[in-house]
Design a binder for these strands. Structure first.
Length: 271
DNA sequence: GAAGACCTGCTA
DNA sequence: TAGCAGGTCTTC
């Protein structure tokens, strides 16, 4: 679930919550695979005693800077998230790891579906430039290549990092491009328009504190357990069958790159 | 590329 | 109860 705007929202909240400067005194790993390929013992021994310096973001990765060569890299995947609690707070049913920080603060990593991952490395690998601030030139170079569909290219984190299924559909709608359009055969002005659309929808997502769809507890919530406010701004994702906000034509649902895809056949013609 | 794997919770 | 889900990995 969390894409770039959701991860950025959590990053900002962690930063302003005063996590930086605290020492990691103890770590409890409650689901072994969360820290794979390390064992929980190895993970804990390498993290305990380190001080959190800052919280950064690279694409969908959260980067907790530590006072050493290794940083704590966190990928939330589908249902991961953090919350802060006072020392002594019991672990929640879906907590997969809990960091006990100096000053009596607990950082809980919660992840119902257990897909999220905690890694120790200097930086995430195989991740392209961040989609939030990519230039039209770099965007075209990296994304608008090859015969794959443009939607598949947008989702490929090694080309450009941070776009997920929701914002891919939103950006393609914004730019009026069919999701199956071949990535490598777009005119300059079309790829520039898509680049602007990508930045526009991601920035709007960040401004609104991320997107939450559905209503379940496995849904995205920020550090304070609040749902994202961007849902009302979503124009196509999750709105199949509803009238297009621009032309009124019913939005169509299909599958592209093995992902649910919603688009307007009228505003995003195949050719 | 496409399909399956990894997982649980929610909805129809 | 079956089917579906915002994301990656691995293996054809």
């Amino acid at each position: 679930m969390p894409e770039l705007p959701e991860v950025e929202t959590i990053r900002r909240q962690l930063s302003s919550a005063g996590v930086a400067g605290r020492r990691i005194e103890q770590v409890r790993v409650r689901w072994e695979r969360t820290v794979a390929p390390l064992s929980s013992e190895t993970f804990c021994s390498r993290v305990c005693g380190r001080t959190l310096l800052a919280v950064d973001r690279v694409g969908k990765w959260l980067v907790f800077r530590l006072d050493g060569p290794e940083n704590l890299l966190v990928h939330l995947r589908m249902t991961g998230g953090f919350y802060l609690a006072p020392g002594g707070t019991p672990e929640g049913a879906h907590d997969r790891a809990v960091f006990h920080l100096s000053g009596g603060l607990q950082l809980h990593f919660r992840d119902p579906r257990k897909f999220g991952r905690l890694r120790l490395a200097p930086a995430p690998e195989g991740v392209g430039p961040d989609a939030l601030c990519v230039s039209a030139c770099v965007f075209r170079q990296r994304v608008c290549q090859g015969r794959r569909s443009i939607k598949a290219a947008l989702l490929d984190q090694s080309r450009i990092a941070g776009i997920g299924n929701i914002y891919a559909d939103e950006a393609l709608f914004e730019a009026g491009i069919h999701p199956l359009h071949p990535a490598g055969s777009m005119d300059l002005d079309v790829s520039a328009a898509l680049c602007r659309a990508v930045r526009k929808v991601l920035r709007a997502g960040v401004r609104n504190g991320g997107t939450s769809l559905g209503s379940g507890r496995s849904n995205y919530t920020d550090l304070n357990g609040k749902s994202g406010g961007h849902r009302e701004q979503v124009k196509v994702y999750g709105r199949a069958g509803e009238p297009c906000v621009a032309c009124g034509y019913p939005l169509q649902k299909t599958t592209v790159a093995q992902r649910t895809t919603v688009f307007c056949p009228h505003c995003q013609p195949q050719e």
